[in-house]
Write a protein that binds this DNA or RNA. Structure first.
Length: 233
DNA sequence: ACCCAGGCGCATG
DNA sequence: CATGCGCATGGG
């Protein structure tokens, strides 16, 4: 087994500390009366190939107009929705995708997110992937961050990491990378902890990527993983 | 004036 | 199967 996956996690944890991605504290929850899981689902779609700072603007607009709940978003006209989410980019297709998933949640699960996440994870993942605009990363982000399922999220930064550090996995395959991380971490940590481990790990990788693993920046002298990094050769 | 961002669907070879 | 392209905004 490749201990590097575990080593990287420990090093990133020591370096970055806790990340608190998509916090679900009760004050936030009760303050606006909405379900944070729904907001996470929406955020997962809005952040597709988009900087999170732009997504925050869109989420702010939605919240301000009280459209960040399942039924209010389902009822708002698409033109208004496009205007509200404009800062997050690709607003034409994203507005359509949001409408689509709202309809799915209402028609298939009667708008009940508890029922949604009671579904066996594999079945739910397949169902999400059938929806237009939901690919593997978005589906897995929803399962992990909204549903607290033990699913490791792979993104462009994860693939870049795997291609720059000699790890015995095909860095171009989403499924293989995901399986490799999950199989390694499953053996190390108790089941109950896996969702939070995957949560933190993915956040670490994104933070690492943003700060030290840019496309155009081969020199990363301050990178916490520089001792493992094989880039640029 | 570039380059990039927590992708995805669709069209080609 | 595997690349390539359009989608769009805002920050560095």
């Amino acid at each position: 087994m490749d201990k590097k996956i575990l080593l990287i996690y420990d090093q990133l944890h020591d370096f970055f500390g806790p990340q608190y991605w998509w916090p679900m504290d009760t004050a936030y929850h009760t303050a606006n009366g909405s379900d944070p899981r729904f907001e996470i689902i929406i955020g997962a779609i809005l952040t597709q190939n988009t900087a999170w700072s732009n997504v925050e603007k869109a989420l702010h607009n939605l919240k301000e107009k009280q459209k960040l709940t399942l039924h209010s978003m389902n009822n708002v006209d698409i033109a208004s929705l496009k205007t509200l989410i404009k800062p997050s980019g690709f607003f034409n297709q994203k507005a359509q995708r949001l409408k689509h998933i709202c309809n799915f949640l209402i028609e298939v699960y009667q708008g009940d997110l508890d029922k949604l996440f009671t579904m066996p994870t594999d079945n739910l993942r397949s169902q999400l992937l059938e929806l237009n605009g939901i690919g593997p990363e978005t589906a897995d982000s929803i399962l992990l961050y909204a549903g607290s399922k033990p699913i490791f999220v792979v993104d462009a930064y994860t693939k870049r990491l795997c291609s720059r550090i000699p790890i015995d996995v095909d860095a171009s395959s989403y499924d293989l990378i995901q399986r490799y991380f999950q199989e390694t971490l499953e053996k190390q940590y108790p089941r109950k902890l896996l969702p939070s481990i995957y949560n933190e790990y993915h956040a670490f990788i994104v933070e690492l990527g943003k700060q030290f693993c840019k496309k155009q920046k081969p020199l990363c002298s301050d990178c916490p993983l520089k001792s493992l990094c094989d880039f640029p050769r």
